[in-house]
């Protein structure tokens, strides 16, 4: 279903932080959306309010999860939903992270803020197939300890799922904080990866993506092996409304995940 939303029921609401929730969604009838790949997104419709693009933050057999931060009218309406509420879903749309292409390589996952959400299904897939990849590094930047997404899950992955290199840094510390304090790029010094055989996956604010990708290029990662997820205004998600253009890229169709070799020249032009 890509034209008309399919009704889904909220089966659980996980409160992640003060302004962010994860909706666990299941179809209301036999019809279901086609399977999502990590990195792809859905258009999520809040009844009577509107529709926004949201990357899938976990893919289970019977449920989809979308982690949503309340920043506008639609996201606020979605964040206010309770179990039993209905939403409309269209999708899947866009490109995925394409983890398969990194078989045999080290993986470097760098997330900033809500950018950890689209990366979570990628990390889960990588953890489920540890033998296929080299080192898995997960570097996370957050505004403050209280704004960190999936904190318990990060600890669980580290303690029980073999995630050996997980580092979290915050812009502002707080009492009891166990991780780093500083910009997310400083964590690159703590990661273990061989630049000539590493694929990196970046998601977060554009300034953070730019800073991280440039640092990685400086460290010898080829731009095409740095995959970034970008964001622009989206209305249709089907490549017809023109809103998500970034130069020649239609982000709903050619993105949201694109290679840094393609993104860098586009992001270098102001107001493109």
């Amino acid at each position: 279903m890509t034209d008309v939303p399919l009704p889904y029921r909220v089966i659980r609401v996980n409160r992640e932080t003060a302004d962010t929730v994860t909706l666990v969604l299941a179809p209301t009838g036999p019809a279901t959306l086609a399977p999502f790949a990590p990195g792809q997104f859905a258009m999520v419709y809040a009844f009577g309010v509107g529709e926004i693009p949201v990357s899938v933050s976990r893919i289970d057999r019977h449920a989809l999860r979308h982690t949503i931060r309340s920043v506008g009218a639609v996201s606020a309406a979605l964040c206010a939903l309770r179990p039993g509420s209905r939403v409309g879903l269209r999708g899947p749309f866009g490109t995925g992270w394409e983890l398969d292409r990194a078989a045999g390589q080290d993986l470097l996952v760098v997330a900033g803020g809500i950018g950890l959400a689209p990366l979570r299904p990628l990390v889960l897939d990588a953890l489920a197939a540890r033998h296929r990849y080299g080192q898995l590094n997960l570097l996370v930047g957050a505004r403050s300890p209280g704004d960190l997404l999936y904190a318990q899950q990060l600890r669980f992955w580290t303690a029980h799922r073999g995630l050996r290199h997980c580092a979290v840094t915050v812009d502002r510390s707080a009492d009891g904080w166990w991780g780093h304090v500083g910009l997310v790029t400083t964590l690159l010094n703590h990661a273990e990866f061989a630049p000539d055989s590493t694929t990196a996956y970046l998601c977060g604010p554009e300034v953070m993506i730019r800073a991280t990708a440039r640092d990685l290029v400086h460290r010898g990662l080829p731009a095409q092996r740095i995959r970034v997820s970008l964001e622009r205004n989206m209305r249709c998600a089907t490549g017809h409304c023109g809103h998500c253009q970034l130069g020649g890229v239609l982000l709903c169709r050619d993105g949201p995940v694109i290679g840094w070799d393609r993104a860098d020249p586009l992001l270098s032009v102001r107001e493109l």
Binding site: D19, G112, R143, D171, R172, L183, P205, V207, M208
Partner: peptide, 15 residues
């Protein structure tokens, strides 16, 4: 790095 952190990039509206 401090200046970038000063931007408060992860705040709801980016900066």
């Amino acid at each position: 790095a401090t200046r970038i952190r000063l931007l408060d990039l992860y705040a709801p509206y980016g900066s």
